[in-house]
Amino acid sequence: MRIDSHQHFWNYDPKRQEWISEEMSRIRKNFTPGDLYPLLQDAKLDGCVAVQADESLRETDFLLDLSAQHEWILGVVGWADLGKDDLDQVLDHYASQEKLVGFREVLQAKDPRYMLREEFVRGMHKLKERDFSYDLLLFPQHLDAALELVKKCPEQRMVIDHLAKPLIKDGEWKEWKKKMSPLAERELIYCKLSGIVTEADWKKWKTEDLLPYLEIVLELFGPERLMYGSDWPVCLLAGEYEQVYRVVDDFTSQLSPSEKDRIMGETAIEFYKI
């Protein structure tokens, strides 16, 4: 099975999506399953994983409702505040939702030490107890703290979204690789080939700009712990869905068929237990 491991849906609201600035006007509108499905079909993908874009339980419910209406939405990465005292009740509330595969918070918008708070680490252990995964949405400056978190939660499955957003536009990779390497040594840490075009120059990026970063994570994680994700519709800021898909599809064509299959779907199925 071939799947897109990372995309979003929303009914645009300027208050809820206040992160969408004026320069992002392309995505200041609704994005629904009806918009995505033809794109998945064109790319010969069987389904997707819908990931939270708003920090609220309402967002989790919204995505779960969509997944119930569309069988090809194979999993949902919802939101929960891991540091809250009522986390047990929240997780128990969602226990019957088979398509809820994991959780995410917008850690990139917070101080790196935020994820090392005692209550956050305790919440991560509660996810492990219930076999939920966790998506790490980070910038490179968060990677040191992420490694500390992983050491505190060594049995928790985590995936780094968007390669931790390296400074592709600036061509910087050495320090980013240095910080990614110890995370990649942990067998339960995965990485998504997603969100890279929006870290490049939106108007002038070329595939050649992205290849060094793809090659580095392939070296570090191997096909067994890499998964394709479009980051649609955010990717539309820098390119159409087909362009984003083609970058990863072409890149993985250098690999054996079984290795390509891992990146284009099997890794995500394994990680999210779809």
Rank of each mutant, 00 (worst) to 15 (best):
M1F: 05
D4H: 04
S5D: 06
N11K: 15
K15A: 09
Q17T: 10
I20A: 11
S21H: 13
E22R: 00
E23D: 14
M24Y: 13
I27T: 05
R28C: 08
T32G: 10
P38H: 07
Q41R: 14
D42S: 11
G47N: 09
G47H: 10
A50G: 05
A50H: 05
D54Q: 13
R58Q: 14
L63F: 06
H70S: 04
L74I: 15
V76F: 14
W79D: 09
D86C: 07
Q89A: 12
L91N: 00
D92P: 00
D92A: 04
Y94S: 06
G102K: 09
R104I: 01
V106A: 13
Q108S: 01
P112M: 02
F120W: 12
F120L: 05
M124H: 10
M124R: 08
M124A: 09
H125K: 11
L127T: 10
F132A: 02
S133H: 03
S133F: 04
D135Q: 01
L138Y: 00
Q141L: 09
L143I: 02
D144Q: 14
V150W: 04
V150D: 08
K151G: 15
L163H: 10
L163K: 02
K165W: 04
P166M: 06
I168S: 04
K169W: 08
E172P: 07
W173Y: 14
W173T: 11
M180Q: 07
M180L: 15
P182C: 01
A184K: 02
E185A: 13
E185D: 15
I189E: 08
Y190Q: 00
S194A: 08
I196W: 06
E199I: 04
D201A: 07
D201R: 08
K203L: 12
K203T: 15
W205R: 03
K206L: 09
L211A: 09
P223E: 03
M227D: 10
W232R: 02
C235K: 02
L237P: 03
Y241I: 11
Q243M: 06
Y245I: 05
V248A: 03
V248L: 06
D249K: 08
D250G: 05
F251E: 01
F251K: 00
F251H: 01
S253G: 04
L255T: 01
E259H: 05
K260L: 01
M264Y: 01
G265C: 03
E266K: 08
F271D: 09
F271I: 07
K273H: 15
I274A: 00
